[in-house]
């Protein structure tokens, strides 16, 4: 069984609040499996990333095989399979942002945080040694009118310049 191959580090369980949230999701779809993406989002919010234990837990909740969960997690870039920093910084680098010098913003972030850019399969590469930040490049964030843009966790920051980036990072506690 594939279940045994995956090592379980820390056990995972939804908090009471998230469990209620999950129960609400269940009423929305005719099949349980359809709640996969929202459930994984919920779990990632709680745990910070999708650990093997999270996958097992979600598979049990949704009554699907572990493989199916893993299949989904590996497909979508927004699910992290390894721990990330407290702040995830997503820098858009698609054409409209590139036309507005997103490279300058990215280079500035790289020197300021003293880190490389994360690769999809190697998030640690873009994570600062104190574990505060993870720097990654993403595709168009649908805000090209206010390019260049970055997202820090859930917040979008617009019309960036290196000075603005400094100001934003200083304001994070």
């Amino acid at each position: 069984m594939s279940d045994e191959i995956i090592q379980i580090e820390t056990p995972f369980q939804f908090t009471e609040e998230n469990r209620l949230e999950f129960d609400k999701l269940m009423g929305r779809y005719p099949v349980k499996e359809a709640a996969m993406l929202p459930t994984l989002h919920l779990a990632q919010k709680q745990e910070g990333y999708i650990s093997p234990a999270v996958m097992r837990y979600v598979a049990e909740l949704l009554e699907v095989s572990l493989m199916k969960v893993k299949d989904v997690v590996t497909f979508y870039p927004m699910f992290f399979e390894e721990p990330v920093g407290q702040y995830v910084i997503r820098v858009c680098h698609t054409l409209p942002c590139a036309l507005r010098d997103c490279k300058v913003v990215l280079e500035h972030l790289k020197t300021k945080l003293n880190t490389d850019v994360a690769a999809e399969t190697d998030l640690a590469k873009g994570t600062t040694s104190d574990g505060r930040f993870t720097l990654m490049k993403v595709e168009c964030l649908a805000s090209c009118d206010v390019a260049p843009v970055i997202m820090i966790n859930d917040d979008l920051h617009r019309n960036l310049t290196p000075e603005k980036v400094d100001e934003i990072l200083d304001n994070l506690e």
Binding site: L37, L40, V72, Y76, P77
Partner: peptide
């Protein structure tokens, strides 16, 4: 009901969207 995607462009294609909505790869 709102259903969040997870950063895959191809889920904008209508049948990719449907697969993704069913909880699979898009």
């Amino acid at each position: 009901y709102t259903h969040p995607g997870a950063g895959a462009y191809i889920c904008g294609e209508e049948t990719g969207l449907i697969e993704s909505l069913e909880g699979k790869r898009g």
